[in-house]
């Protein structure tokens, strides 16, 4: 034996005979189910009509352009990105309020969280949608935006928020979704802040930092890094939950898919395709968050 010898290689993980039998059994079960379904279900699969609603040939411009389903996917993506940002802002502010010593802030944030967590999302969104469109929009003047003014009718705006004439529709859905998801983010942020040892607050205070600076420079960076995994889960939930706003006629993927399914009567094809689109979107986000997590772990060392 020699001290400089390389260490022995770790044992390799490989599939055993039992694993193969298990896989075979699962595959057989799936095939059997498909066979049985085909037997009962006399269904004439026709994918081409549905695929035509993903992209279509525009004879006027002579280009392939996005059709309803792809437009819906883009709206869902916009809802996901803006919803994530907005829900994070709400969640961080409210999460801080939850841990605050100030009784008013505590009551307000607690009320917000409990109200939303104890009402079904659909019910909350019906109520809140009415509030947003009848109270908040007139106040902000959203309904009076001139859709042809260069401020909104440009390519940057279209990429960020979609078609100007649907902006009010998009914003209503976004606010509903962000308010709803914000409550869950609040609880995650609260848990994150409370997981930071008291000594970190004290060390920040002892060098004379204001409470806000302690929070911003010391507590939140550590807390947010800690809660990245549950946050990632919540944001992926947000994408899936965005389907709920189809009920208030927000023109996102599920809403448009309902229309496509009823016009084409190709129900299975439409929903299987839409399911695949959601999967692709959610899984990309999952990969992105996984990468962020590894990066955060690397800088912390």
């Amino acid at each position: 034996m020699n001290r400089t010898d390389p260490p022995p290689a770790p044992p390799r993980k490989r599939l055993t005979f039992v694993d193969l039998i298990l896989f075979g059994a699962v595959a057989a079960l799936v095939l059997y189910a498909v066979y049985k379904v085909n037997d009962v279900l006399v269904y004439d699969w026709n994918w081409s009509r549905v695929l035509g609603f993903v992209i279509r040939w525009d004879p006027e411009t002579g280009h392939w352009v996005a059709n309803l389903l792809l437009l819906g996917l883009f709206t869902t993506l916009r809802l996901a990105v803006w919803g994530t940002i907005l829900a994070t802002v709400i969640g961080v502010v409210m999460g801080f309020c939850r841990t605050s010593d100030n009784l008013t802030l505590k009551i307000l944030s607690r009320g917000y969280v409990e109200l939303i967590r104890n009402i079904p999302p659909v019910v909350f969104i019906f109520i809140f949608f009415f509030f947003v469109t009848s109270q908040i929009f007139p106040l902000l003047g959203v309904d009076n935006i001139d859709t042809h003014s260069p401020a909104v009718d440009n390519s940057v705006f279209r990429v960020l928020f979609g078609r100007p004439e649907l902006f009010g529709n998009f914003l209503a859905g976004l606010l509903c979704l962000a308010m709803f998801e914000g409550a869950y983010v609040t609880e995650i942020v609260r848990a994150g802040i409370q997981s930071i040892p008291k000594g970190q607050w004290e060390a920040g205070q002892a060098i004379g930092l204001s409470p806000l600076n302690v929070l911003r420079d010391v507590i939140l960076p550590q807390a947010l890094r800690k809660v990245l995994p549950p946050m990632a889960g919540q944001f992926i939930s947000l994408i899936k939950d965005s389907a709920i706003v189809s009920l208030i006629s927000i023109q996102e993927l599920t809403f448009l898919a309902t229309e496509v399914a009823s016009t084409t009567t190709r129900v299975f094809e439409t929903w299987i395709l839409v399911g695949a689109m959601y999967f692709a979107l959610c899984y990309s986000f999952a990969l992105l968050f996984g990468w962020l997590e590894r990066r955060a772990a690397r800088t912390r060392r």
Partner: peptide, 13 residues
Amino acid sequence: VGMVFQSFNLFPH
């Protein structure tokens, strides 16, 4: 007033 703690309390991030 500078303070040094038993458990250091450095900012780990």
